[in-house]
Amino acid sequence: MKKLSARRRHPLAALVVLLLALACTGGLYAAFAPASKAQADETAQSLTIEEGKKLYSVGCASCHGTDGQGTSDGPSLVGVGAAAVDFQVGTGRMPAQQPGAQIPRKKVVYSQAEIDQLAAYIASLGAGPAVPTEEKYGDEGADIAKGGELFRTNCAQCHNFTGKGGALTHGKFAPSLEGVDPKHIYEAMQTGPQNMPSFPDTTLSEQNKKDIIAYLNAVNGDETESPGGLELGGLGPVSEGLFAWIFGLGALIAVAVWVAARTAKAKKS
């Protein structure tokens, strides 16, 4: 039940309620006591959507079209869901600065409240995945080791063993997952932003996603231990090779220069 109530607090949950309410006939609607509350929610919700629409027309419509139907400069947003908006705007990728191989993560432009309004508006255009609640991506009840195995099967090929990122074709890249909000990681798996494929709950279950996030927290968090010392970017043999040449052989050559150098001679007086 806790899960449900937490969901209800969410703007998008209210939308579901709204749709349900619309489906009901007026008589049934009047007969239920909570309906009046739903009505109050509904007004609040429509206000949120209204605010979101305003933000949308200023910040997004030029590329995504006035009603989110998409243009040549930006894809349609109908049915992408609140999770996609929360991810794209919440990580600063949207609004985009310039076209390129890939839209990178930037400074976030909107406040979380504004992002929620935008998300509510986009969600009202067509049903899509909702923004996940905290217990979905929290560490509680997660199996880190299973998450590791899932990460290596599904994620490591692009994002590297511990999420340091990697290259894709023609200048595109899988970004580093360091310091990324677990919520955004969850949303990315769910919605598949840009060229990333999606991993919907039907193929990568909610528990799977939770495990993956717990694994990432364990191996790529602020407190992650690197027992051997400097992590050298966690990129594998290339950075190790550079380190061995520059600091290993470099130090040894410096030592060799000292060993072979002539000792200072006494000045002739």
Partner: peptide, 15 residues
């Protein structure tokens, strides 16, 4: 054999 990570390189001397 069905898993992999990006940045798969050998040590520098095999680079």
């Amino acid at each position: 054999p069905d898993q992999v990570s990006t940045g798969a390189q050998p040590d520098w001397y095999m680079g």
